[in-house]
């Protein structure tokens, strides 16, 4: 009887300890998840900012200005455009 009790006590103890450690691990994983989610939000924000930056740099006003003033480009005159029709089977 006493031996059985001893075994039961040991089993209970082991269960209790594993619960504690499982809980601890769950919390650790949760912290990681939290960090990952925060990173996701931060990256999303950064993406938005980069998109904003991209569209500012690639703005039509700026592109046209650079093309005309820095690169000396201009729209082709009608006589300068050659239209090439696709050759069938090529």
């Amino acid at each position: 009887m006493a031996r059985l009790n001893l075994i039961l006590i040991l089993i209970t103890l082991a269960c209790a300890l594993s619960t504690v450690s499982a809980n601890h691990r769950a919390r650790k994983l949760f912290t990681e998840l939290e960090a990952a989610q925060k990173r996701m939000r931060d990256l999303d924000v950064e993406w938005g900012q980069l998109q904003l930056e991209q569209s500012t740099w690639a703005g039509h006003v700026r592109v046209e200005k650079s093309a005309r003033e820095k690169l000396g480009m201009k729209p082709p005159a009608p006589g300068q455009i050659i239209s090439v029709d696709p050759v069938p089977g090529n």
């Binding site: 999303d44 924000v45 938005g48 900012q49 998109q51 904003l52 991209q54 569209s55």
Partner: peptide, 19 residues
């Protein structure tokens, strides 16, 4: 929750919210 972006038909951003 962030407000959605507005893009043109080719995906160029026209309006975006940043914190």
């Amino acid at each position: 929750a962030t407000r959605g972006r507005i893009t043109d038909r080719n995906g160029d951003v026209l309006a975006v919210s940043t914190p």
